[in-house]
């Protein structure tokens, strides 16, 4: 009963903080540009494919055609439309990035806060495990795993990526929880005799939300790096439509170094990934603004 009341009492303040968050997002110009960039890529990779048809038709007379109204970004080594490939190749990149980011952050939040709150042997166990994990050369391990298991399942790859990348984040979350635990309002809650669960979920976690969001985004960029890198080495590929990484690999092996005409073909997916990463990283600037309590007025 008490909890339910507390829950309803919280609702408006949540909405308020949401609108305030949006205002704060717009305050940092670079960050807001990043935010718009992320929105653009979500639209580009998830909505545009509905309107742009898949182009798998070989046109021998139109190999490496320059950009035109028919082919916005020209054509590839088989005369297929590059723009269409770009539109359809983004979904996997975005989905893997988001799922990996979400799983990694979830693991990190669970292990990190457990470690910080419980302390003792749980803490030393989780931290030793994290230390050990960090010593494993990640990208090489991924490359080996990708070559041995057929990693053409989006969720499987995302799981694998997050299993490899949780330790750094876990440490960060742990130290964050440790520092928040020292704050006055947590001390106050504790002296009021509130339960540990209440302290973690109602006092500490809300104050970490933006930090967690930033961590999520950095986990996403790491996932994009690994996924596109593996695809570039030819170690993973997804069924029908090529993801950006696979397109880069194709363009590269079909001789992007030798054919000057294939400039657009290789640069389109390269710039797509680069700009997506850039948008994500810039977006964190706005989140930092939200995160920094000194910038939050009247909360």
């Amino acid at each position: 009963m008490m909890q339910a009341q507390a829950f309803y009492a919280r609702q408006p303040s949540f909405l308020q903080s949401l609108s305030q968050t949006l205002k704060l997002l717009a305050r940092n110009k670079v960050g807001f540009a990043g935010f718009l960039g992320v929105l653009f890529f979500v639209f580009f990779a998830l909505v545009l494919p509905i309107f742009v048809p898949i182009d798998n038709q070989t046109r021998m007379d139109k190999i490496y055609a320059p950009a035109s109204w028919d082919h916005l970004l020209g054509t590839d080594f088989q005369g297929r439309d590059v723009f269409s490939q770009l539109v359809h190749g983004g979904r996997e990149v975005l989905v893997i990035a988001f799922v990996t980011g979400a799983i990694t952050t979830f693991l990190a939040v669970v292990f990190g806060s457990l470690s910080a709150v419980l302390g003792g042997w749980v803490d030393s166990f989780i931290m030793s495990l994290a230390d050990l994990w960090l010593a494993i050369p990640q990208f090489p391990v991924l490359a080996v795993l990708a070559s041995l298991v057929k990693l053409n399942n989006v969720i499987l790859l995302a799981l694998l990526l997050s299993l490899l990348s949780w330790p750094t984040l876990t440490r960060a979350i742990r130290s964050q929880v440790l520092s928040l635990r020292q704050r006055d309002y947590v001390e106050a809650a504790r002296s009021l005799g509130l339960s540990t669960r209440h302290i973690i979920f109602n006092e500490i976690m809300p104050n970490m939300m933006s930090y967690i969001a930033i961590s999520l985004i950095f986990a996403m960029t790491a996932a994009v790096y690994a996924q596109a890198g593996l695809a570039f080495l030819g170690l993973i590929s997804f069924s029908d439509n090529n993801s950006w990484g696979v397109t880069i690999q194709l363009a590269w092996t079909k001789g992007a170094i030798f054919f000057r005409d294939s400039f657009l073909y290789i640069m389109a997916p390269v710039l797509a990934i680069a700009l997506f990463q850039l948008s994500l990283v810039s977006f964190t600037r706005s989140l930092e603004e939200v995160f920094n309590p000194r910038l939050r007025t009247g909360v």
Binding site: T221, V224, Y225, A228, G229, F232, I248, W252, A256, I266, M267, V270, I273, A274, Q277, L278, L280, V281, S282
Partner: peptide
């Protein structure tokens, strides 16, 4: 923020 292999390709 840009992956190193993409910079190499560019």
């Amino acid at each position: 923020s840009i992956p190193n292999y993409l910079i190499a390709i560019i």
